[in-house]
Computed example of a mutant assay.
Amino acid sequence: MKILEASGISKVFGGLTAVNKVDFHIDEHEIVSLIGPNGAGKTTFFNLLTGIYEPTEGRVDFLGAELKKSKPFEITKLGMARTFQNIRLFSSMTVLENVMVGQHCRTSSSIFDALLHLKRHKNEELRIRSVCEEILEFLDLTQYKDEIAVSLPYGIQRHVEIARAMASSPRLILLDEPAAGLNTNEKVEMTTLIRKIRDRGFTVLLIEHDMKLVMGISDRVAVLDYGNKIAEGKPEAIMKDERVIAAYLGKGAEPDA
């Protein structure tokens, strides 16, 4: 089943075409990677899927509905969550509090319920806490739940940001360079974490520069170059594609370099 489909999607900034008539889809429970050199249009493409940018032309369908003019918070509520290349945790909040923020789109009580300390608000907060504590346990983060999130090692912060995305109860999680800034051991842990997320029933789309991680984890890989999709297929086919080698890896480069 196709969970997301982009049809002829383009984005033009002034006279610059950042994404050019790209067709793309993700099937449910897949891990799909989007790769390409710097400036290829990958993050712009993510922003088109998540409502930060509106396509100049083309359309995006998620769970069978067109995301025309949908705002980011509306898309999150529909079941699409994302992380960012630059970690965006709340600096004054604990790990648990940061993750609980991800449940905001699933709440029903109002600010008046909170101000008046109504039972409905208290019960909902208990439910949110329970959901988020279970996510922390699943990701082996329970020991950090009362720590200020930004005080933790960088690799742990990456995991916390993914936990917050999971807390919104998404069907599709978009990860923007989840291995950026991680050391070798942390990249292995990130690979394991992404597989765990997929095995739990989520669908995953990631932008990533680490080719060893991409080729080892992906069901499919799509490649952008100057905003154009130049290749798509199984990792083993992408590794041998001459257009990919020339555009992304460079002539004669090793795929896992």
Rank of each mutant, 00 (worst) to 15 (best):
G41C: 03
G39E: 04
T203S: 12
Y154N: 06
I173E: 11
F112V: 13
L49M: 06
P170M: 10
M166L: 15
L141F: 08
M1A: 13
I9E: 11
L141V: 09
E124V: 03
I31E: 02
L172E: 04
H159K: 15
T43P: 12
Y53R: 03
L67S: 07
G15L: 09
I148D: 05
G201A: 01
M239W: 00
R164W: 11
D140V: 01
M80L: 14
T203V: 06
M211S: 07
L152G: 10
P170G: 11
I197M: 01
N47W: 02
I197L: 05
S218H: 07
E124C: 03
N183F: 05
N38D: 03
M239G: 03
R164A: 09
T83S: 11
I238P: 00
N183I: 00
V101S: 12
M190N: 00
V19D: 04
P72M: 01
V12A: 08
A165S: 14
E232G: 08
G64V: 10
G36L: 00
A114P: 02
G58C: 06
C132K: 00
E134H: 12
G51D: 03
F73I: 12
H117Y: 11
S10R: 11
L174K: 10
N98R: 08
R243P: 02
V99C: 09
P55A: 05
I156F: 05
G79R: 05
L206E: 10
A246Y: 03
T142G: 13
Y226E: 09
R106N: 12
A237T: 08
R200D: 09
I197R: 00
M190K: 09
S110I: 04
V22L: 06
V12R: 13
N98H: 08
M93C: 08
V99P: 04
R127H: 12
I245R: 08
G155T: 08
F73M: 13
I9F: 05
E54W: 05
Q157C: 07
K240A: 09
G181C: 02
G181T: 09
G233E: 04
T191N: 13
T107C: 08
V131H: 13
A40W: 01
R198P: 10
G79W: 04
S151Y: 13
L16I: 15
E189A: 15
S91N: 15
T44R: 03
S109W: 11
Y226L: 10
I9C: 09
E30Y: 10
I26R: 02
P235A: 01
L78M: 14
I87D: 05
F13Y: 13
M215Q: 07
L174Q: 10
K69T: 08
A246L: 06
T184Y: 14
L118P: 02
L182A: 05
G201N: 00
S10Q: 10
D146L: 12
R243F: 01
A65Y: 13
E5M: 07
H29F: 13
M215L: 12
P55C: 10
I75V: 05
D256V: 14
V101F: 04
M190I: 02
R127E: 15
T94G: 05
D199T: 08
G201K: 01
Y226V: 09
F13Q: 05
V131D: 14
R198S: 12
F45Y: 06
E5Q: 14
D225R: 03
